[in-house]
Design a protein around this nucleic acid. Structure first.
Length: 280
DNA sequence: CCGACAACCTGTGAGC
DNA sequence: TGCTCACAGGTTGTCG
């Protein structure tokens, strides 16, 4: 499901709606996602005010004034904002109820932040202290939309790597947020064969790749993300970037750039799509 | 350190 | 209609 653009679209919807609201209740309907649910979560959260929501890679960090609630959406997770009283559906595992804003004099406008995750590969963790030093976050690589993500910085991390470039740019220890869809899409835009050994890609080509990754992710965020089957933004709207995919999911169809037939191969148990003429 | 692979879990669509 | 199989946006752990 969610790669960086889908997580960022979720953050952009939630942050303005929930910031400065106070938690009034927590409902957990599953004992665990990828990890056991945080102990005493209701006791820790109720009464606290949300200061803001940030993102690191595909993780969302809800700042409750020094302590953080961390979400990961895994393969099939979504976060939605719903009116209080909305009945839960299958796989709605977590509700966090937020009060109306403190200073509003309108009738109650309380909201539920609800996490749905059929496959339960997602995660919910409570982090005291600096989240950057948490084991899940400490070893993460570069943020692709930040200035530090450059061809030179990428080249330094790829030196000596013999694995295929597509698999390496999906490694969160190198660069975060680039998953299976956006890896294929970015390599197409950069004109690079996904099978090329990562350490042997020239600096000039890495420069094109870095620019392609930034462009692709930004365009996808602008489009509300890609919705293949079960991604929706926090308002329930699907994204529409899937209609702009140039190779992902287009096996056997003509390349939009040159007309050659788009190919599907397996790399590391994942599907890779590419144009054999445009990507060499 | 690196690379290859299995595992986690549910739903869906294709093929018979 | 119903069965079985392959596969799906991610990450972690193990093994050589």
């Amino acid at each position: 499901m969610p790669e960086l653009p889908e997580v960022e679209v979720t953050r952009l919807g939630i942050e303005p709606a929930l910031s400065h609201r106070r938690v009034t209740d927590v409902v957990l309907r599953a004992p665990a996602l990828r990890y056991p649910m945080p102990a005493e979560l209701a006791g820790r959260l109720c009464g606290r005010t949300l200061a803001g929501v940030s993102r690191r890679g595909k993780y969302l960090l809800f700042d409750f004034g020094g302590s953080h609630l961390l979400f990961h959406l895994g393969m099939s997770g979504t976060l939605r904002l719903l009116p209080v009283g909305t009945p839960p559906r299958k796989h709605d595992h977590v509700d966090i109820l937020f009060s109306d804003t403190v200073f509003s004099d309108t009738p109650s406008d309380d909201l539920i932040l609800r996490m749905n995750d059929p496959r339960r590969f997602g995660a919910l963790l409570w982090i005291d202290g600096d989240p950057a030093s948490h084991p899940l976050l400490a070893k993460l690589g570069m943020e692709p939309l930040e200035r530090g993500f450059t061809a030179r910085a990428l080249a330094a991390r790829l030196a000596g790597r013999t694995a295929a470039i597509k698999q390496v740019i999906m490694d969160a220890g190198i660069v975060v947020g680039v998953g299976n869809i956006y890896a294929s899409e970015s390599l197409f835009r950069a004109g690079i064969d996904p099978r090329a050994p990562a350490g042997k890609v020239s600096l000039a080509r890495l420069d094109r790749l870095v620019k392609a990754i930034k462009e692709t992710l930004r365009a996808a965020i602008h489009a509300g993300g890609s919705s293949l089957r079960d991604f929706f933004g926090c308002d329930g709207d699907p994204g529409h970037f899937q209609f702009e995919h140039r190779v992902y999911g287009r096996e056997g169809e003509p390349c939009r750039q040159c007309g050659a037939t788009i190919r599907l191969i397996r790399q590391g148990q994942r599907a890779s799509y590419f144009c054999p003429r445009c990507q060499r």
